[in-house]
């Protein structure tokens, strides 16, 4: 893999000269080994205890390479199953690559705070738990608490158990906790699709704010509007491969041009 040519390619595509590289994705392959269940269309005369029963390999990423720079916000687009989420999980280090590697200046964070929270507990306690899960010290969470509640617009409900919240309220709380800390590299996977229009607006503002604080943001979304509004660069994945990497207008245009064809 020759990085220098790839870097030049990126320079050509983006209007501003790149700053310090923060994430290097090098020839990344990810395979999933899946125990398929259910009946296969062909070859269905299998015995129950056959050891190789339905073990199939899914090649989710097939050699993706790119370099992300400081201050960039990169939109990741592609149809369902194109490997967007797998790529993001590999960048965070949650999914080990089967080949290739991801290098980063600091450990990237994913906006996936929801899994750490306990639905039976109040919003207030979940703010503490979520903050600790993100690695914030206890004192800092206490300072941020008001701000989080205010951003999530949950002033009147913060003492109630989280399971009583509407799905929009839960999503707002999770987003508010996750963006409360400063992220050097942040990955936002579909999170902006939640909440009403006003909250979406404020979320996008917040993400721009992170970028302005010398952060790098990856944004996975099916909403071309929020990608075009927030991102300075767009990566288009198709069936685990990098189709295009460049400015938002041209990539989104090319992607939308390809849509409507049978493979989408």
């Amino acid at each position: 893999m020759d990085v220098s040519t790839r870097t030049e390619g990126i320079v050509e595509q983006s209007e501003t000269p790149p700053g310090k590289p923060v994430v290097v994705v090098d020839d990344l392959h990810v395979d999933y080994k899946v125990h398929a269940t259910g009946k296969r269309a062909k070859n269905s005369r299998r015995k129950l205890l056959t050891p190789t029963r339905g073990l199939s390999s899914v090649h989710a990423l097939r050699g993706v390479s790119f370099t992300a720079y400081e201050n960039e916000s990169i939109g990741v687009i592609g149809s369902n199953g194109s490997g967007k989420s797998t790529l993001m999980r590999a960048i965070v280090g949650l999914t080990p690559p089967s080949k290739g590697a991801v290098y980063a200046s600091s450990r990237p964070n994913m906006l996936g705070i929801g899994a750490a929270l306990i639905p039976d507990l109040s919003g207030e306690k979940n703010i503490i738990l979520g903050g600790l899960a993100l690695g914030l010290p206890k004192e800092r969470i206490k300072q941020l608490q008001e701000e989080i509640i205010e951003f999530a617009e949950l002033e009147n409900f913060i003492d109630l158990p989280m399971r009583t919240y509407s799905s929009g309220m839960q999503a707002r709380l999770k987003f508010a906790i996750a963006v409360a800390r400063d992220h050097e590299i942040l990955i936002v996977d579909e999170a902006l699709a939640v909440g009403d229009r006003r909250f979406r607006q404020r979320s996008e503002d917040r993400i721009r704010g992170i970028r302005e604080n010398a952060g790098t943001v990856f944004l996975v979304s099916h909403s071309m509007k929020s990608i075009a509004d927030t991102c300075s660069r767009v990566i288009w994945l198709n069936q685990g491969q990098l189709m295009m990497d460049g400015g938002p207008e041209e990539v989104i245009e090319a992607y939308q041009g390809s849509k409507g064809q049978p493979d989408d």
């Binding site: 893999m1 990085v3 310090k20 590289p21 923060v22 994430v23 290097v24 090098d26 020839d27 390479s65 590999a90 960048i91 965070v92 280090g93 949650l94 080990p96 590697a101 991801v102 290098y103 980063a104 200046s105 450990r107 990237p108």
Partner: peptide, 14 residues
């Protein structure tokens, strides 16, 4: 890529 990453003080994630 590994040298490029090392030169820019990047570490392998995970």
């Amino acid at each position: 890529a590994a040298d490029f990453a090392a030169e820019n003080n990047l570490h392998r994630v995970g």
